[in-house]
C-alpha cells in the first residue's frame, strides 16, 4: 500500500511539473504556430536565475518570484529578435528555435561552466502522508504547479484577455479586424509561455541537477506531451502530460529508468503516428 501511495505521489508531482512546461509550449503553439525547441533552455534559464540570485544572498522565495520575470523578459527578447521573423513558416520555427537553444546553452556554459550547480533544498524534511514519509518540498512543488496550471486555465477561459487570446487562436484575421492587437498578443503570449517554463525550472531547481544539459531532459517529454495530448488545446496538454508523466513515473518504479524511457517514447511515437490530432481530439 505504502509503495502505491509513494509511486502515486511521485507520478503526480512529475505530471504537474511537466504540465507547467507543456502549458507554455501549447499556448505558444496554439497562438502562433511556433514550435519552440528552445523551451527546455528557458526552463534552464529559470533554474540558473535561482542559482545566481541565491549565490548573491537573495532568499529562495524571492528568487522564485524573480525567475518568471527574468525568463519572461528573455522570452520578449527572443520573440522580438527571432520568432517574429519566422511566423507562418512552422518548419523554420523548429530550426530557428533549435539554433536558439544551442546558443543559450553555450552562453550558460561560457558564463557558468559545464559543471552542475547545486541548490539547497529550501524546505528540508518530510511530511507523513497516508502512511508514507514524503519530502516536504515535493508537496510544495505540487501545490505551486497545480495553482499555476489552474491560474493559466482561469486566465485563458475566464478573463477578457483570455477571450482575446482564444479569438486570435481560432481566427487571427477576424480577431485582428475586430480590434484585437494581434502583434501585442503574440508578444505577451510568448513572454507568458516563457515565464511558465522559467517558473517551472525555478521550482524544480532544488530537486534536479542544474546543468547546461538539463533543458533537453525536459524538452522531449514536454514535446511528446503536447503532441500526444493534441496541439492547440489546454485539456490536451493535461491529458498529454498525464499520459507521459504518469507512465514514466510508474514504469521507472519497476525497472531501470533507461528502459522506462524507451517504452514511454515508443508509446508516444505510436500515439503521435496513429492519432496525429492527439488523444483529446482524436477520440472524440
Amino acid at each position: 500500500m505504502d509503495i502505491v501511495v509513494l509511486i502515486g505521489l511521485d507520478a503526480f508531482s512529475y505530471v504537474l511539473t511537466l504540465l507547467l512546461v507543456t502549458l507554455g509550449l501549447v499556448i505558444i503553439y496554439g497562438m502562433m504556430n511556433v514550435i519552440n525547441m528552445a523551451h527546455g533552455e528557458l526552463f534552464m534559464l529559470g533554474a540558473y536565475t535561482v542559482a545566481t540570485l541565491l549565490a548573491s544572498g537573495v532568499p529562495f522565495w524571492i528568487c522564485l518570484l524573480a525567475a518568471p520575470i527574468v525568463v519572461g523578459l528573455a522570452g520578449l527578447l527572443v520573440e522580438e529578435f527571432v520568432i517574429r521573423h519566422v511566423y507562418g513558416r512552422p518548419i523554420d520555427t523548429i530550426l530557428a528555435t533549435w539554433g536558439l537553444s544551442i546558443a543559450i546553452k553555450q552562453m550558460i556554459i561560457i558564463v557558468f561552466g559545464p559543471a552542475a550547480v547545486s541548490i539547497a533544498n529550501p524546505v528540508p524534511g518530510s511530511v507523513n502522508l497516508m502512511g508514507v514519509d514524503y519530502p516536504a518540498y515535493r508537496l510544495v512543488i505540487m501545490a505551486l504547479a497545480a495553482a499555476l496550471a489552474l491560474a493559466t486555465y482561469l486566465v485563458i477561459y475566464r478573463s477578457t484577455t483570455g477571450l482575446q487570446i482564444r479569438a486570435v487562436i481560432s481566427n487571427r484575421a477576424m480577431a485582428g479586424s475586430l480590434g484585437v492587437n494581434t502583434r501585442r498578443m503574440d508578444r505577451a503570449t510568448f513572454a507568458v509561455g516563457s515565464a511558465l517554463a522559467g517558473v517551472a525550472g525555478a521550482i524544480m531547481s532544488p530537486m534536479i541537477s542544474v546543468d547546461p544539459q538539463m533543458g533537453v531532459g525536459f524538452l522531449i517529454p514536454a514535446f511528446l506531451s503536447v503532441l500526444v495530448g493534441g496541439l492547440n488545446s489546454l485539456i490536451g496538454a493535461v491529458i498529454g502530460a498525464g499520459t507521459i508523466g504518469g507512465t514514466t513515473s510508474i514504469l521507472s518504479a519497476n525497472m531501470a529508468q533507461a528502459d522506462a524511457q524507451i517504452i514511454v517514447f515508443l508509446l508516444a511515437i505510436m500515439i503521435i503516428r496513429f492519432v496525429p490530432q492527439g488523444l483529446w481530439k482524436g477520440f472524440r
Partner: peptide, 21 residues
Amino acid sequence: GAHLAVVTLCAAVVIEIATGR
C-alpha cells in the same frame, strides 16, 4: 512537418538509449 520532425527526433533518442543498454 512538425510531427515527422518530433517523431524522428524521438526515434533517435530511443535508439541511442537502447544501443547504450
